[in-house]
């Protein structure tokens, strides 16, 4: 059975420790950003940011405010469509590690033509892969496969102070996800788990996905 993450957005404080830790561990350089009227920066995933926290706010009917945080990353799908698409043109560009369930982009991704790479990106139900123009490399979260194979936690999970993120055996993570869902439903009746049968990065969301991010869940 593969490994899974639980990302319980009801506990997230958007401290962005995960976003920083991910960048640090992967030695990704800082990019130049601008303030454009939001705390969400960088504005989107990019070859230098495999993980970003998305911010979205709205008013409630009773005049209150809800501010949702969505630490976005690759879902490490059980049946990764990106791999299916890549396999058609460059087998081995995207691999699926059986032991951990990690979906990994290899150096062979550079052999994908810009059009084929675009097809991989568009195939992703969660809008995750990004292409680095100069090298042609595709990038995204790699589950900190170097850490996980050594028995360490992914860096984002390790850095989380609030218990938003958990990582472990899929069966255990699923059980914990269901337990937390039942509890959250008492205050947020519309709470749900995002595509738990299809992905290994399972989000617990308190309300509909449009209040988080269009690609927060597929179903």
């Amino acid at each position: 059975m593969p490994k899974s993450f639980l990302i319980d957005t009801s506990r997230c404080t958007a401290c962005r420790g995960c976003q920083m830790a991910c960048k640090d561990w992967h030695n990704l350089p800082a990019i130049e950003t601008k303030q454009t009227g939001t705390h969400q920066n960088p504005p989107d995933l990019n070859p230098c940011n495999y993980k970003i926290v998305r911010f979205r706010e709205h008013k409630t009917e009773d005049g209150g405010v809800i501010w949702n945080f969505f630490p976005d990353q690759c879902r490490h799908c059980m049946a990764p469509i990106c791999k299916d698409v890549a396999d058609k043109v460059v087998p081995g560009a995207i691999i699926h590690d059986e032991k951990t369930g990690a979906v990994l982009f290899t150096e062979k991704c550079k052999e994908l033509s810009p059009e084929d790479a675009q097809a991989v990106i568009e195939a992703c139900p969660y809008n995750i892969p990004r292409r680095e123009e100069s090298s042609g490399m595709l990038s995204k979260c790699d589950m900190c496969i170097d850490r996980v194979t050594e028995g360490l936690l992914p860096m984002c999970v390790k850095s989380c102070p609030t218990g938003t993120m958990l990582f472990g055996e899929r069966s255990e993570i699923l059980a914990e996800a269901k337990r937390r869902l039942e509890k959250l439903k008492k205050t947020f009746p519309k709470a749900y788990l995002a595509d738990p049968r299809d992905v290994n990065v399972i989000y617990l969301l308190a309300e509909e996905k449009e209040f988080y991010y269009e690609y927060a869940s597929f179903m």
Partner: peptide, 12 residues
Amino acid sequence: TPNLLEAEPQLY
């Protein structure tokens, strides 16, 4: 710290 400046780059 460049990564922190990336996350909050300018006065708002």
